[in-house]
């Protein structure tokens, strides 16, 4: 099923879609695959596979710690694509979440080709704005890949429209000004940003940054088409004694959040 179709199915069920993030390669390449599959089994609709990068300037300490560990073990872009392939076999849409330089270095054509060949649905690019996506967009379209860009509370209406226009799959609305990490409260700005985004696009709008539990997921599901969760999945992996325990903990978080997105 395409990313868009998954969102539409969730909408038809009267709920928000649940989007879960984990970086490839943590705790190991196989451990990450197991955790991602466990996440899907427990109710995550769409997964984001993080491509570990040396300079993750949009990420807070939790995700930084996991990607640094993955890089120390030598995880590379090819391993990330193998992870995508393994997880895509479940049938769930799998998007790569990557900073721009690893894709640029791999080669935009080669990356889109290999991501499509691995069964990937597309990519989320947190430090690529559509203004700089002149090479990325046509390559992604050629390989039928989703291109997910971010809108932020600080985005002007003009930029929300411009960014949404370059998106395929869904639009990623950053709930708050800041980096990834769990927060006590989801930012007040999120609902307004979703509303401004909906005014200019028919694409689903999913909200990320700071959502960590069922209550927050339910709150966001009240105004958005999707709920994106990252650090709240990574933290139990960091704290787990071994990979199997980590996957179980991830599944528990996923089950809790899956309840949340159904409680709006």
């Amino acid at each position: 099923m395409t990313t868009l179709a998954v969102f539409e199915k969730a909408r038809a069920e009267g709920r928000a879609a649940l989007v879960g993030y984990l970086p490839a390669g943590y705790p190991t390449a196989d451990g990450a695959i197991d955790a991602l599959k466990a996440m899907i089994d427990a109710g995550v609709d769409v997964v984001e596979v993080g491509l570990p990068y040396s300079d993750p300037l949009m990420d807070g300490p939790v995700i930084q710690a996991a990607v640094e560990a993955a890089l120390r073990q030598g995880i590379n872009t090819r391993d990330v694509l193998r992870t995508v392939e393994a997880v895509a076999s479940t049938g769930a849409p799998v998007l790569v979440m990557s900073y721009w330089n690893p894709i640029d270095r791999y080669g935009v054509d080669a990356f889109t080709r290999d991501l499509a060949a691995a069964g990937g649905a597309g990519a989320i690019t947190p430090d690529l704005i559509p203004d700089e996506a002149g090479e990325w967009l046509p390559a992604a379209r050629r390989h039928d890949l989703d291109t997910v860009f971010l809108v932020a509370p600080s985005s002007t209406d003009e930029r929300v429209a411009f960014t949404a226009d370059a998106c395929r799959g869904f639009v990623y609305a950053a709930s708050t000004m800041g980096v990834t990490g769990t927060r006590e409260q989801v930012g007040d700005a999120a609902a307004g940003l979703v509303e401004r985004t909906r005014r200019v696009t028919d694409l689903p709008v999913a909200v990320g940054l700071g959502v960590s539990n069922a209550a927050q997921a339910a709150q966001v599901a009240g105004f958005a088409d999707g709920v994106i969760v990252g650090s709240a999945f990574v933290r139990p992996l960091l704290e787990a004694d071994d990979a199997a325990a980590g996957a179980r903990a991830v599944a528990a978080v996923a089950a809790d959040l899956a309840q949340g997105v159904r409680q709006r």
């Binding site: 430090d127 704005i129 203004d131 700089e132 002149g134 860009f149 809108v151 950053a174």
Partner: peptide, 23 residues
């Protein structure tokens, strides 16, 4: 981007940043 885009030096420069910083 047009080739005379502000902030470009030949193929170099530009703005590879989170959308949150664009404003």
């Amino acid at each position: 981007l047009p080739s005379d885009a502000p902030g470009r030096f030949g193929p170099y420069g530009g703005r590879y940043v989170p959308e949150a910083l664009v404003a």
